[in-house]
Amino acid sequence: MDIDGRDGVFRFNPANFFDNDLCVRAFGMSASEVVSRLAGHCELTKEVDGGAFLLTTDRPIVGVESVEMDIRIRKALGVPWHPVD
């Protein structure tokens, strides 16, 4: 039973924080492993209060650039990307 309704990540944004429970549900790995896997693929990856803080870019992005960044981060994590129709 999905109590809180949050078991996935729709899109990575320029700044993200995912607690450890969400990392496990959405990516199948701990927040620590998410931080480790994305080191070098983001401007900043840091474990904060047991969760993953990710600064994927250091500037605002919109449109296609946002989608491309999301795909790049998902590939680095090894999680599938499913386009929205």
Rank of each mutant, 00 (worst) to 15 (best):
M1Q: 15
I3P: 00
I3V: 01
I3Q: 00
D4K: 08
D4G: 04
G5C: 04
G5I: 02
R6A: 12
R6K: 15
R6Q: 15
D7G: 15
G8N: 13
G8R: 15
G8A: 14
G8Q: 15
F10N: 13
R11N: 11
R11G: 06
R11P: 09
R11E: 14
F12W: 01
F12H: 00
N13Y: 14
N13P: 02
N13W: 13
P14A: 06
P14G: 06
P14C: 05
A15R: 14
A15N: 15
F17K: 00
F17H: 04
F18N: 00
D19M: 10
D19R: 07
N20H: 10
D21Y: 15
D21P: 13
L22F: 11
L22Y: 12
L22T: 09
V24A: 03
V24Q: 09
R25H: 13
A26V: 06
A26C: 07
A26R: 04
A26Q: 08
F27L: 11
G28I: 13
S30M: 00
S32A: 12
S32G: 13
V35Q: 10
V35A: 13
R37H: 09
R37A: 07
R37E: 10
L38G: 00
A39F: 12
G40I: 00
G40V: 00
G40Y: 02
G40A: 01
H41Y: 10
H41S: 09
H41V: 01
H41G: 02
H41K: 02
C42R: 06
C42Y: 11
E43R: 11
E43L: 08
L44Y: 08
L44D: 12
T45S: 07
K46W: 07
E47T: 09
E47I: 06
E47D: 10
V48Q: 09
V48P: 08
V48F: 11
G50M: 03
G50Y: 03
G51E: 13
G51D: 13
A52I: 06
A52K: 06
A52F: 10
F53G: 03
F53M: 12
L54P: 05
L55Q: 02
T56G: 06
T56F: 09
T57K: 01
T57H: 02
D58L: 06
D58Q: 05
D58P: 03
D58H: 11
R59G: 01
P60N: 01
P60L: 01
P60C: 01
P60Y: 02
P60V: 00
I61D: 04
I61Y: 08
V62P: 03
G63I: 02
E65T: 01
S66T: 06
V67T: 05
V67F: 03
E68M: 03
E68G: 00
M69K: 03
D70R: 05
D70C: 04
I71H: 04
I71F: 02
I71W: 03
I71M: 05
R72C: 03
R72F: 08
I73N: 01
I73Y: 07
R74S: 11
R74C: 08
K75W: 03
K75Q: 12
K75S: 05
A76C: 10
A76L: 08
L77A: 07
L77V: 05
L77F: 06
V79R: 05
V79K: 04
V79E: 08
V79I: 11
V79M: 07
V79C: 06
V79N: 07
P80T: 02
H82V: 12
H82F: 12
H82K: 13
P83E: 14
P83N: 07
P83K: 09
P83H: 12
V84R: 07
V84G: 05
D85R: 12
D85H: 12
